[in-house]
């Protein structure tokens, strides 16, 4: 758990894992092995960057919500998940709209167009596109 806490934000130095090891009083190999293990177990999804897409101009991220009959959830969920531009796709409970997906676009028009294009292929009439107006908070989950 201590290793996990530290590897969430790697020090940006030539030897990030060695630096963490020194801090925790363990060997660099211990840190690398623990990291590999947590990666293999799925606790760590991947080692990568967390990028602020808004600062790169991907400012338009409509959340699309659909009302899908229960028996078509998997079929439609898996189809949408496979579509280009889709970053998230979930079945959620708690609302009449039960399938959610996100796409990121450089501008509102192309994002809307892409969302409509995807929806037109699944033949669901009841849906909404919820465009974000402001970002109050966006962080990565950290323990």
């Amino acid at each position: 758990m201590e290793v996990l806490k530290q590897v969430q934000r790697l020090p940006v130095t030539p030897t990030p894992f060695k630096d963490i090891a020194d801090k925790l009083n363990v060997s660099e190999d211990d840190v690398l092995k623990a990291s590999e293990d947590m990666l293999a177990r799925g606790i760590i999804r991947r080692f990568g960057p967390s990028i602020s897409h808004r600062k790169l101009g991907y400012g338009s991220n409509p959340m699309t919500v659909l009302k899908v009959p229960e028996e078509r959830l998997d079929e439609i969920g898996e189809f949408i998940a496979s579509q280009e531009g889709v970053t998230h796709c979930y079945h959620r409970s708690g609302w009449d709209y039960n399938l959610f997906f996100m796409i990121h676009g450089k501008d509102r028009e192309s994002a809307f167009e892409r969302a409509h294009e995807i929806i037109s292929k699944v033949n669901i009439k009841d849906y909404k596109l919820l465009l974000s107006i402001r970002e109050f908070k966006k962080t990565s989950f950290e323990i």
């Binding site: 969430q8 940006v12 030539p14 991947r46 080692f47 990028i51 602020s52 990565s140 950290e142 323990i143």
Partner: peptide, 27 residues
Amino acid sequence: VERIQELLDKGILRKVGAIIAPRELDY
């Protein structure tokens, strides 16, 4: 290393490191 640090300073990168799956930790 220098450029990654700059991208962090500019806020283009929020971090580099392990992306955790909270569910796997029973969160």
